[in-house]
Design a protein around this nucleic acid. Sequence first.
DNA 1: CCGGCTGTGAAAATCCTGTGAACGCAGGGA
DNA 2: TCCCTGCGTTCACAGGATTTTCACAGCCGG
Lengths: 97, 97
Amino acid sequence: MGRLEIKPEEHAALVDGRPLSLTVRELQLLCSLAGHPQRIMTREELFAEVWGGAPRDDDRSVDVYVSRLRAKLGEALPGRRLIHTHNGIGYRFSPDG
Amino acid sequence: MGRLEIKPEEHAALVDGRPLSLTVRELQLLCSLAGHPQRIMTREELFAEVWGGAPRDDDRSVDVYVSRLRAKLGEALPGRRLIHTHNGIGYRFSPDG
DNA sequence: CCGGCTGTGAAAATCCTGTGAACGCAGGGA
DNA sequence: TCCCTGCGTTCACAGGATTTTCACAGCCGG
């Protein structure tokens, strides 16, 4: 998986061996995304996996946490973009930037 | 289908396994075209499948989106032309360049 | 209290869409 | 040859839709 390791069972995500300080939600979301590499996941799917159930019509939780995740990942891996936006659909995780 | 895969149910089109970043409209149009390989489809047919209803007399939406699609496909598959123009009629999708 | 995590609302930034117009290109006729 | 016409291709833009980010209030544990 290159420089990023995710160990859900240890509640940890490592970049080059250094742990990222992710919150529980952030780690859950990262696991959901990284659990289906290269697959476009809709907000509904992500919400169901992380929060459970269906999101409100105008719920932006997924977007907000993607943003927070990107901020922390971008800090640890400058210049790489692991989470891609698919407008009108959802997000996609790509191991290689 | 060679190097191009289209998965409408996943909102994705892949070239050599790599997802193209198509907009919703672009993907819809690609699906319509690729859904009838080797068949010449009129603007009216394409418009009906993607937009629904009938196009205005001087509507150029189909042409513009074919152009955008060709640009993105050409970037991912240099030297190959999958969408052919049939003058005065419409467009035809051919899996083999 | 205090500090971090969460979710929400809203502003800011970005992207998508459809349209009009410019451009190129080929064919026909004078 | 030159001009005109019809058609397809592409550019540019404005409006709208969507996403990104910020700020904040509630909550919970220390």
